[in-house]
């Protein structure tokens, strides 16, 4: 369960103050599939970083599963991230010169899971994210954009997080691959994961249960998605 109470985020660079989030409040229940929409620069990624415990708000409270995350230290946040959160970055941020499986397994290294089990879990997550087995030992910089995106998703899945955050997960994909990725999210949501994704494409947002619109760091609208598009759970994967 996610509770954001009057969140502000202000960046200060020397004399310049940038107010990015201004009094944002909302609640997301476990198992929801939420899309956050808004124009470029409206503060979506900033919001996601706070939800993903990568950053803390300048003012206000962020309560994750009953725990106030906004006051935690650097290391305490790291522990929250490795236990509860899977993050798919807007730019995939894969380790270059490392194989697909090594990239996917990386969060498990910091969770202290041993080598054998890591490999197992990484393979499982990769298949779940729709990666082909023949690509497992390819280096990440030898993959296509869509494949990289799926590696990034697999890495976010590998520690079986309750909360999965994705920043523009289909931004770099064609419609067909985009659909496969959306299908993956749909399936994960069916399995009980809470999913929050950022998009500026209405088509993508239509797959969510709920759509939050952000303008200039404030919530413009927050409503249920009436005509949710449902994927067939066993849609083709290739």
């Amino acid at each position: 369960m996610i509770e954001c109470q009057n969140i502000y985020k202000t960046y200060v660079n020397g004399d310049v103050e940038t107010k990015v989030l201004k009094d944002v409040s909302f609640t997301i229940k476990d198992g929801e599939f939420v899309a956050i929409m808004g124009p470029s620069g409206s503060g979506k990624s900033t919001m996601m970083h706070i939800l993903g415990a990568l950053d803390t708000p300048s003012k206000g409270k962020y309560i994750l599963d009953g725990q106030d995350v906004s006051t935690l230290t650097d290391d305490e946040l790291a522990v929250i991230r490795r236990q509860k959160i899977g993050f798919v970055f807007q730019s995939f941020n894969l380790l270059p010169r490392a194989t697909v499986l090594r990239n996917v397994a990386l969060p498990l290294v910091y969770a202290g899971i041993d080598n054998m089990e890591r490999e197992e879990l990484a393979k499982k997550a990769s298949l779940q994210a729709g990666l082909d087995e023949s690509r497992f030992y390819h280096l990440s910089n030898q993959l296509s954009g869509g494949q990289m995106q799926r590696v990034a998703i697999a890495r976010a899945l590998v520690n079986n997080p309750t909360l999965l955050l994705a920043d523009e997960p289909t931004g770099n994909l064609d419609t067909k691959t985009g659909d496969i990725v959306l299908g993956t999210f749909q399936r994960l949501n069916d399995q009980g994961h809470t999913i929050i994704l950022i998009t500026h494409e209405p088509y993508v947002a239509r797959h969510a249960d709920r759509i939050i619109q952000i303008r200039d760091g404030q919530i413009l609208s927050d409503e249920e998605n009436k005509d949710k598009k449902i994927f067939n759970s066993d849609s083709d994967e290739n």
């Binding site: 991230r81 910091y110 890495r155 520690n159």
Partner: peptide, 16 residues
């Protein structure tokens, strides 16, 4: 730097 950022983002602590 980016790699370190990533490692921290996916759960590495300072001491790691």
């Amino acid at each position: 730097t980016r790699e370190i950022g990533l490692r921290k983002a996916i759960g590495a602590t300072r001491s790691d």
